[in-house]
Design a protein around this nucleic acid. Structure first.
Length: 780
DNA sequence: ATTTACGCATTTTTT
DNA sequence: ATGCGTAAAT
């Protein structure tokens, strides 16, 4: 790129026949079919393209449709070329979805939207063009969280600070917070800068930034922060982008942090054609820097802004919306929306009290099986929990029941250790100066290189101002190293040399395979026969497979650093388990919401740390949870829950008391059918307990109205006695024999201790003795 | 240098 | 309860 500021390079181009713009224009002429089926508010949100617009889009009101149609409209009316529209999202998923839908709408893939992407992807794109202006080279590497923390640890050590008292993790969160707020080291308020490491916080931040520049690297926060610096220090650059972006669109505006807000505001100061779409009631990321205020003060920032409220809900039934609406009405400081629907009232959301969390899991399992037998698809059901720790009991229950489930969230593909290790090898091959990657794998698999040796290399590298790999090459020619490490390092350096030459001739997937093989990395996992080693090897294979979809190794690595996920096309029939945060933007016919207890939900920590604001965010989380449901929302609370391995008595969530009794059905939990008197008896039978909210008039009324439900005849689940399976034995002989070695996806390897029908008792090497259904194990 | 043992904390998660 | 990370033992 000769002149990075020559942004208009692709603007002089005439739309080709059949190109995106041409097709769109013809669509517009022919009568704008894309506008059909929009309700009046949606239409307004689409058609008012000039000037600032704030679209308050409630849950399920067609937000994405409005965004994509708006883009199509801008293109179709010839108001701008696709390359002049900036459209930012938070997640790759959202931007992928938008790309797809726009392409659909305009009849082809939206290759023509170069500026549709996440904040970070677009920030990266801009930064690479002007890297020199902020002290980077355009091929700078993007650090992941691991790299970031390792680098900070080095900085902390170099400053001779006690790592115990001031862990790198904590510094990382400080720096992250500053970057989220758009604060460069010099702008950090003195008070905050000195809160870390006896006043050294600010200095550490400065040093960390210096190290990043030395390494020609940027962390996630920098991708935006350096943009800000770029725009502020180089008005000509800013102006070029202001002119380029005729129209700007922002998705999930309620989730923007200060840095993103400042970035947008700088760009929007040009033409002021900025449309922000969001829902203040769904702001649930305050804890990572999102500022609901951004959306609340939009009209002040952009005087004369058109505000459109989307309140017609196309997702949920009446009772569900009424329940969610009543709950969220308890929040103050909202812009205020009331969702409505033309849909039927539907089933009332249900509330079930369980004796303990185990019973809660059991009840959910039974309900799912009952629905399944009525013909409902497991893929249309989800369990939404407040914290990940709640998943375990539910998973355990599902494993026992043989109910297929999938956990959404959890460690993502590119965050898995084995993937990061493999990537580190590739990074070093692609870029021998990537010290952080080199350090990550220098002793993985174990090569007998310890801290002492690494430190030696470090020292040498720093003295000679060369990358570590180069330092290794020189060191092995001297006799400064002990023979053993010297041999290991020589071997490694030779390998990297060899691999580097292959990069030209070999497809990256093949190369990766060879590297993993020759480095002994795959061997390492093959030798480790634990429950997940097989999965790890499978992940590595998947990685290699996916690599060849990219033109070259560099393109692949760039993708990986920005897109920390892998598109999985697992369409198998399973129930989803995820956190409430992870559920945002999704919808299901049936949603299970366990754990509505004080302390858990609202979460005590959120309350302690953020007070009323924390409570309101928790309430929004509850709102998000309920509004995920299309037809059925099922709330649960338990009177006893195991927390950190200890049983605690709990009280029902205050949110339960905020629900409208007339829209909620109270389910009398079936008493334990194992014969324990009162076991599993609903708390409602005991009247107001523990000073909880159950003495309020509304709920007393609700309780008396509650139909004591008969033991559901539809319950098709296996018979249970104290949670043990009694009726699922098929009587048929098992495929497994005593003493046989087996593998279980969750518990790993073990030996069959006894066989009972299709149930096996297995002594697992790691997990101990468990009883599992035989279809969950395979011969090991 | 690597293995084992003990102490400690433990919401939510994207890029 | 459980895992993770650092400290002592091999």
């Amino acid at each position: 790129m000769a002149d990075p500021l020559d942004l208009d390079d692709d603007l002089s181009y005439t739309p080709q026949a059949g190109g995106l713009a041409a097709r769109a224009q013809s669509a517009a002429r022919s009568n704008a079919a894309y506008l059909d089926g929009l309700n009046p508010e949606q239409r307004r949100a689409v058609e008012v393209i000039d000037g600032p617009v704030l679209v308050l889009a409630g849950a399920g009101t067609g937000k994405t449709r409005v965004l994509t149609t708006r883009i199509a409209h801008i293109i179709a009316t010839g108001s701008a070329y696709p390359s002049q529209i900036l459209a930012v999202t938070f997640t790759n998923k959202a931007s992928r979805e938008m790309k797809e839908r726009i392409g659909h709408m305009l009849g082809q893939v939206a290759e023509g939207m170069p500026w549709l992407g996440t904040f970070h992807a677009i920030g990266t794109k801009i930064l690479r063009r002007h890297a020199e202006l902020v002290g980077l080279k355009s091929d700078f590497t993007i650090l992941d969280t691991d790299d970031q923390i390792r680098l900070m640890r080095q900085v902390i050590r170099a400053e001779d600070i006690d790592e115990k008292r001031w862990p790198a993790r904590a510094l990382a969160s400080f720096i992250d917070g500053w970057k989220n707020r758009g604060l460069t080291p010099d702008k950090v308020p003195a008070g905050e800068a000195s809160a870390f490491a006896n006043g050294k916080g600010g200095k550490l931040y400065t040093l960390y930034q210096e190290r990043l520049k030395q390494l020609n690297a940027a962390d996630f926060g920098d991708l935006l922060l350096e943009n800000l610096r770029l725009f502020r220090e180089h008005p000509d650059v800013l102006q070029a982008y202001q002119e380029r972006f005729k129209y700007m669109l922002v998705d999930e505006y309620q989730d923007t942090n200060v840095a993103q807000y400042l970035w947008l505001r700088l760009l929007a100061q040009g033409r002021r054609n900025v449309a922000c779409v969001g829902d203040d009631d769904q702001s649930i990321y305050g804890w990572r820097g999102a500022e609901v205020d951004n959306i609340l003060r939009f009209e002040k920032d952009f005087p004369g802004a058109v505000v459109v409220r989307l309140e017609r809900n196309y997702r949920s039934t009446g009772h569900i919306l009424a329940t969610a609406g009543k709950l969220i009405a308890h929040n103050q400081g909202r812009l205020g929306k009331t969702l409505f629907t033309d849909d039927e009232e539907g089933e009332k959301p249900t509330l079930t009290g369980a004796w303990d969390s185990e019973e809660e899991a059991r009840l959910i399992g039974e309900e799912i099986e009952a629905l399944q037998h009525k013909g409902h698809s497991l893929a249309d059901m989800a369990i939404l929990v407040r914290i990940s720790a709640q998943m375990r009991e539910i998973e355990d229950r599902f494993v026992t029941l043989g109910l297929p489930y999938r956990v959404i969230g959890g460690p993502r593909f590119y965050e898995r250790a084995e993937i990061r290790d493999a990537l580190a090898y590739l990074r070093v091959v692609a870029n021998p100066t990537d010290d952080l990657a080199f350090e990550r794998i220098v002793n993985v698999p174990k090569r007998g290189l310890g801290d002492a040796t690494i430190e030696q290399v470090h020292l040498y590298a720093r003295k000679a101002q060369i990358p570590m790999l180069e330092a290794v090459r020189r060191l092995i020619e001297t006799d400064e190293l002990k023979p053993k490490p010297r041999g290991a390092l020589r071997e490694l350096a030779l390998s990297f040399g060899r691999w580097s030459t292959l990069i030209e001739t070999m497809k990256q997937g093949e190369l990766a395979e060879q590297i993993l093989e020759e480095s002994g990395y795959t061997d390492m996992w093959q030798k480790e026969r634990t429950a997940d080693s097989a999965g790890r090897l499978e992940n590595l294979k998947e990685l290699v497979r996916s690599m060849d979809e990219f033109p070259d190794l560099g393109a692949f690595l760039e993708h990986v650093s920005l897109v920390m996920e892998m598109t999985d096309n697992d369409t198998a029939e399973r129930v989803s388990i995820m956190t409430l945060h992870g559920a945002k933007g999704l919808e299901f016919d049936t949603v299970f919401l366990p754990g509505w207890e004080e302390g858990l939900f609202p979460n005590q920590r959120a309350l302690d740390e953020s007070g009323r604001a924390g409570l309101e965010e928790e309430r929004r989380l509850a709102y998000v949870g309920i509004t995920r449901a299309r037809r059925r929302a099922k709330l649960y609370f338990a009177s006893n829950r195991r927390i950190h391995g200890m049983w605690n008595a709990t009280t029902p969530s205050r949110f339960i008391d905020e629900l409208p009794p007339e829209h909620v059905e109270i389910i009398d939990a079936p008493a334990g059918f194992g014969g324990h008197g009162g076991y599993g008896r609903s708390r409602f039978d005991q009247g107001g307990f523990g000073g909880s909210s159950y003495s309020t008039p509304g709920w007393q009324r609700a309780q008396t109205q509650a139909q004591p439900k008969a033991q559901p005849a539809t319950r098709k689940g296996p018979m249970l006695i104290e949670g043990e399976l009694v009726a699922k034995s098929t009587g048929t002989a098992s495929n497994f024999n005593e003493g046989e070695r087996v593998f279980h996806i969750k518990f790993g390897y073990g030996a069959v201790a006894s066989v009972d029908g299709n149930k096996l008792t297995i002594d697992f090497e790691k997990a101990g003795r468990k009883m599992v259904l035989e279809n969950f194990v395979e011969r090991g």
